[in-house]
């Protein structure tokens, strides 16, 4: 029998109230306005695997990350972690027992470390907060072990964050995230602020830690190449919804949703094939006032009347789940993905 998945997300939604103040609404006879940052998101992350969410700014991927670690409460939907439902909206304290088991790594290693704390104290904060060490000696030992685990020296614990480069700071954030021996790590653009050679070091480290500690990851990224390297499963988000969800090999070999294809076309080609790209025109519309029907229809070359009126539901296509009328109706030409083919 297979083990149950570690994370299950069902119908997850989060809206933000962006209305004007009460008096202005009254005077202008304006209704309340909501920004639907995340709507109807479903996915399952099996233990020890990596799920990635990709999309452009404003697509809701970071909101999903925050919902999963309990930094935000969902407006609707359910999150189950290891079989237990996390209902932050109803009961904050219900979150406490699982909080240690899920941790987050943020994008900006300059903003996410307290500049006035020594590295050892930063890394030990979860140990103190969760009461995981009995005395100072044990604390010191555990911090040294954590620093070694991320490729730093135990003597670095006495230094302050400003003495480290961006890549080393991200190592410190990872050490802190690992302090409570979590099972699930949410990484929101963990390497976007780093140079490529440093990014490679961090990505390799993250992979090694997964192998060694059996971690499960949710990786949030706008970089498809990073996602293709790291993920087992990929969800492509557009204006708050997952438009395509597929095993990574499948997604890159046979992208189905027109938006997935657009994203793949925008990846600069290092193989120097010098194709003249025809980038899809237009930009992501405002999530406050999304287009009716399929939110992607104004930019989609295959959109028709149905796409403009009716929102497509996610439907299984092969190993993928795609929300697109054109895919459902078979109106879309097949398209090969980029890069080396997946061997059969």
């Amino acid at each position: 029998m297979s083990t149950p998945p570690l994370v299950e997300v069902e119908g997850l939604a989060r809206r933000f109230d962006v209305s004007r103040p009460w008096l202005a609404r009254l005077l202008l006879r304006e209704p309340r306005r909501f920004l639907h940052a995340v709507a109807g998101v479903d996915f399952v992350i099996p233990r020890g695997t990596t799920m990635a969410l990709v999309g452009e700014s404003g697509c809701g991927k970071s909101t999903v990350a925050r919902l999963l670690v309990g930094l935000l409460a969902p407006s609707a939907g359910r999150i189950r972690f290891d079989g237990t439902e996390l209902d932050l909206a109803r009961d904050r304290r219900a979150f406490a027992p699982v909080r240690r088991r899920l941790q987050m790594i943020f994008q900006d290693p300059y903003a996410s470390l307290n500049p006035r704390w020594r590295v050892a104290d930063i890394v030990a904060e979860p140990l103190d907060a969760f009461g995981l060490v009995r005395d100072r000696a044990e604390r010191r030992e555990r911090v040294a072990e954590l620093l070694r685990q991320v490729g730093l020296s135990p003597t670095d614990g006495a230094k302050y964050p400003h003495e480290f480069s961006g890549g080393q700071r991200q190592r410190i954030s990872i050490a802190r995230a690992l302090a409570g021996r979590p099972e699930f790590l949410v990484a929101d653009e963990p390497t976007s602020a780093l140079d490529v050679s440093v990014q490679a070091q961090i990505l390799n480290l993250v992979k090694d830690l997964q192998e060694r500690l059996g971690l499960t990851y949710l990786l949030i990224s706008h970089n498809l190449a990073v996602v293709s390297l790291m993920a087992d499963q990929v969800g492509v988000m557009y204006l708050g919804r997952i438009v395509e969800l597929a095993p990574a090999g499948e997604l890159f070999a046979r992208p189905r949703h027109p938006y997935t294809r657009l994203l793949l076309d925008t990846v600069p080609d290092l193989e120097m094939r010098r194709r003249e790209r025809t980038p899809v025109a237009g930009e992501v519309p405002s999530p406050i006032d999304p287009p009716p029907g399929c939110a992607f229809h104004p930019r989609c070359p295959w959109a028709n009347a149905r796409c403009r009126a009716e929102r497509p539901r996610p439907l299984p296509v092969g190993a993928a789940r795609v929300a697109c009328h054109a895919v459902e109706e078979g109106r879309l030409p097949d398209r090969e993905g980029q890069g080396p083919r997946v061997p059969h």
């Binding site: 390799n204 390297l229 090999g249």
Partner: peptide, 15 residues
């Protein structure tokens, strides 16, 4: 060190 689409599962060259 640059990750590429379609190259899965491997490690990146690390300087």
């Amino acid at each position: 060190a640059i990750p590429r689409i379609g190259v899965r599962g491997g490690r990146l060259v690390q300087i």
